[in-house]
Simulated scan of single mutants.
Amino acid sequence: MSAESDLYTILSGHAALTALVSTRIYPDAMPEGTAYPVVVFTRAGTEPIGTIHGTTHGEFASMRVECWGKTRTSADAVAAAVNAALVAAKEVPTGRAGGFDPEAGLFATTIDVTLLAL
């Protein structure tokens, strides 16, 4: 399995998160005309796990989960549910940041997490 499919499984299987976003959990980009709030996740980086024999045995995948909403409160509520989903899956979020897209008029809260993919 990939880190992306693992992360999607973690997020889409968490009742508190799906109560807020329903099925609006997307890899890489949200479709045009999407309702809000919404979750978009991307791979921010990859660190292969090397062996002493020069082969790889999996990877650490740095993932970024963006929680978008029409208000700061909405984006933060979704981010709190994402955080809870990750913790329930025994994954430890490594960072959190806020943002605003003035062109779209949307607020974002971003959660970073590193997943082990074997």
Rank of each mutant, 00 (worst) to 15 (best):
M1W: 01
S2A: 00
I10D: 03
S12L: 01
S12E: 03
H14V: 05
A15T: 04
A19Y: 03
V21M: 11
T23V: 07
I25V: 10
I25W: 06
P27W: 10
P27Q: 13
D28C: 10
A29Q: 15
A29F: 10
A29T: 14
M30C: 03
G33M: 10
G33Y: 11
T34I: 02
T34W: 02
P37S: 10
V38T: 12
F41V: 06
R43I: 08
A44D: 11
A44P: 06
T46V: 12
E47H: 09
E47I: 13
I49S: 12
T55N: 11
G58P: 07
E59Q: 15
A61S: 12
R64E: 13
E66R: 14
G69I: 00
K70F: 02
T71I: 05
T71L: 01
T71V: 05
S74A: 02
D76H: 03
A77E: 09
A77L: 13
A80Y: 09
A80T: 15
V82H: 05
V82L: 12
N83C: 12
A85F: 07
L86F: 06
A88E: 05
A89Q: 01
V92C: 10
T94Q: 13
F100R: 14
F100H: 13
D101V: 12
E103F: 00
E103H: 06
A104V: 08
G105D: 09
F107C: 05
T109M: 05
I111H: 02
D112A: 05
D112W: 04
D112T: 08
V113Y: 02
L116D: 02
A117R: 01
A117D: 00
